[in-house]
Structures are given as C-alpha cells and as structure tokens.
C-alpha cells in the first residue's frame, strides 16, 4: 500500500510536469511493462513501440488520473493491458508470418542457448492456455507484479488470484522439469 501511495504522489507531481517524478515512474514501470509486451507479443520492436505508447498515453492522460478512483500502479497497468488488447485487435493476421524469424527479435545471446529454447517452448505452450491464464502468466511470472496490483487490474480478489496462480504453476511445472 505504501508503494502504491508513493506512485500516486509521483503521478500527482507528474501532472504538474515534474521531470523527477517522470524519471522515477519510468524507471519503475518501463522494464516490467516491456517484459509484459515482450512475453505476450514476442517481438522486440513491437514491444518497444507498445512500451513507448504506454508512456505516451500516460503523459496524454495524466490529467485524468485521480487517486480517489484508484492507484497509479493499477492505472498504468490498465493502460498497458488495453494497449496489448488494441494491438491484437488491430493486428493484421499476416503480421507474424511477415516476420523473418521471431527468434531474432529476442536477445541474441539467448537465442542459441538451451534456456532460451526452453523459454520459447513454454511461452508457446502458454499461448494455448485460456486468455485469463495467459494474462496471469504475463503478470505474475514475467513482470513479478504483486498480487494486490494484479487483483486491481483484473478485478479479482487476492485469494481468487492465489488459487488461479497456484493452478497455473501446477500446469506449468511438468514443462519446466
């Protein structure tokens, strides 16, 4: 709660154009948001574009943020979530097919490693999961988001989330061994 309050204060400072707050917000959220897109889309440039788009939307919409309506962390993640939804909604069906090799968009050192191959394999498996589980995977495993934030974003209770994530773990473990 204290962390969320901290970002609420930073967001209010950002509303006034405080660059220090902008730096802190970017430093905290840029990596997990990029990871969220990367895990979901698995295309480096697209993930970069969507990450920048999220922060652009933050600047454009920051005046609309009101801590009474919710915390900033949930607010910015909701923007990221909506951006991903919009991306898949407007994405051309042939987009991925047009890519020469998705693997080349991932960290090149990892492409050849076994770990990378394992990650890609598991992520492909996750793609076959229901949308809700895919999203939980991205939020919990990829971005390490706290339960409270995931609960706020998804509109579920924390206990329900814990159960859902436990099930997801159980589902993944056979592939991780």
């Amino acid at each position: 709660m204290a962390i969320k309050d901290q970002f609420n204060v930073l967001a209010e400072a950002l509303q006034k154009g405080d660059s220090g707050s902008a730096e802190k917000i970017f430093d905290h959220f840029s990596k997990p948001i990029y990871a969220f897109f990367m895990a979901r889309i698995r295309h480096k440039e697209t993930a970069q574009d969507l990450t920048q788009e999220v922060f652009l939307k933050v600047i454009k919409s920051i005046d609309q943020f009101d801590r009474k309506s919710g915390d900033f962390t949930a607010w910015i993640w909701q923007i990221a979530r909506n951006s991903a939804i919009d991306y898949f909604r407007h994405k051309k069906p042939s987009y991925l097919a047009d890519l020469p090799d998705e693997g080349n968009n991932i960290n090149e050192e990892l492409v050849k490693s076994d770990e990378s191959a394992k990650v890609r394999e598991i992520m492909s498996i996750v793609e076959s999961f229901p949308a809700e589980e895919q999203e939980l995977f991205q939020m919990h495993f990829v971005t390490d988001m706290p339960y409270t934030d995931i609960a706020q974003i998804t509109g579920k209770t924390e206990s329900a989330l814990r159960v859902a994530i436990h099930r997801l773990r159980k589902k993944l473990i056979p592939y991780l061994k």
Binding site: E23, F26, S30, Y34, A35, A47, T51, S116
Partner: peptide, 27 residues
C-alpha cells in the same frame, strides 16, 4: 524459468535510455 524469462524479456538499454529521455521531455 523466471530468471530465464527476465533475460528473455529484458529491454535493450539503448531503447530504455532513449525512451526515458523522450518520456521525461514529454512530461
């Protein structure tokens, strides 16, 4: 797996730097 995922989804430092500058400038 989480560690590998973090490596897999790690952003390019150059991108982060430019995106950060852009975000702060926009702010």
């Amino acid at each position: 797996f989480k560690k590998s995922l973090r490596e897999f989804t790690k952003p390019d430092p150059a991108f982060l730097k430019s995106a950060r500058t852009r975000f702060v400038n926009l702010a």
